Simulated scan of single mutants.
Amino acid sequence: MAEQTRRNGRKTVSNRLFVENESKTSKAGKSLIALFETFLRAKELEGLRPRTLKEHRATFKYFLSFLKQKYSRVEFADEVTTELIRDYVFYMRKEKRLWDDHTKASCQYKTDKKGLSPFTVNIRLRTLKCFFKFLTDEGYIQANPAARVKLMKTEEYTIQAFSKQQIIDLLKQLNQRTYAGFRDYVLMLLFLDTGIRCNEALGLKKKDFDYEQKIIKVPAPLAKNGHARILPLSKKTAKALNTLIKENSIFENSDFIFLSNYGDEIDLVG
């Protein structure tokens, strides 16, 4: 009874105070490579295209290669600083030898030229900015080391369009008596008519083409920006597409418009 009286009015502790800090420590303890895999899975769930995910993975490997050369002790995300990332940008722009990251190309194109173009540097830097923003938003690191690193300024060039005669000469190069030649001829007509992206064109299926309305429908999953759109066609292009689809009937179980000589889908990436 006396023991119970001494305890009355005294502060008691039931819950631990530093559970959240331990959780943050656990998150920060993951390696850069492990966190990048987490980042890619999250972006895949958000709907990023496989090609974009592949580009993210490739550009991150370049960053890891830089760390191995210059900052071999850096292993965790919270060890990456703004100064380190700026050093990486300087390395890409001024020090990196061309083709070093490409085994076959380094043998084929032997050169001592150094420095990547600002356009290429920005592609690789955007992956890092996106990655470290994700880590900050998700609580893996407290501050984003890439936030204050600016993209490089790039010059904007005016693309010179083909003349009418150049287009005629280009189309004449294709042997329309062969299947591949006619297929490429139709593909080029489609490019000229619509300005469709190559990956979008190669992913088109027969159901996406309306010969009566003379239109091509680019479905949302195929479009680069995720927005479906309808492209009008000229009579010549619509007729050529219709003819190609009829000739594709020789291949069984294929819904794509543009096929290889074996009736397979054409994969631009692989």
Rank of each mutant, 00 (worst) to 15 (best):
F36W: 05
F39D: 00
F39N: 00
R41P: 00
A42E: 11
K43A: 02
K43M: 05
E44H: 07
L45W: 05
L48P: 09
L48C: 15
L48G: 14
R49G: 03
R49Q: 15
R51A: 08
R51C: 07
R51T: 07
R51P: 04
R51E: 10
T52M: 06
L53C: 07
K54W: 06
K54H: 08
E55N: 12
H56S: 08
H56Y: 14
R57C: 04
R57H: 11
R57W: 10
R57I: 03
A58R: 05
T59A: 08
T59W: 00
F60N: 01
F60W: 05
F60D: 00
K61P: 01
K61N: 02
F63W: 01
S65E: 11
L67T: 01
L67K: 00
L67P: 01
K68D: 00
K68Y: 01
Q69M: 11
K70H: 08
Y71Q: 14
S72V: 11
S72A: 15
S72Y: 13
R73P: 01
R73M: 14
V74K: 09
V74E: 09
E75L: 12
A77R: 09
E79M: 02
E79H: 03
T81R: 11
T81I: 07
T81D: 09
E83N: 14
L84G: 04
L84P: 00
L84Q: 12
I85R: 03
I85Y: 01
I85Q: 03
R86Y: 06
Y88F: 12
M92E: 02
M92C: 04
R93T: 05
K94E: 04
K96C: 03
R97M: 13
R97N: 07
R97W: 07
L98W: 13
D100W: 12
D100T: 09
D101V: 02
H102P: 05
T103A: 14
K104Y: 14
A105M: 12
A105R: 15
A105F: 11
A105D: 15
S106L: 10
S106W: 14
C107Y: 15
C107M: 15
C107F: 15
Y109L: 13
Y109Q: 14
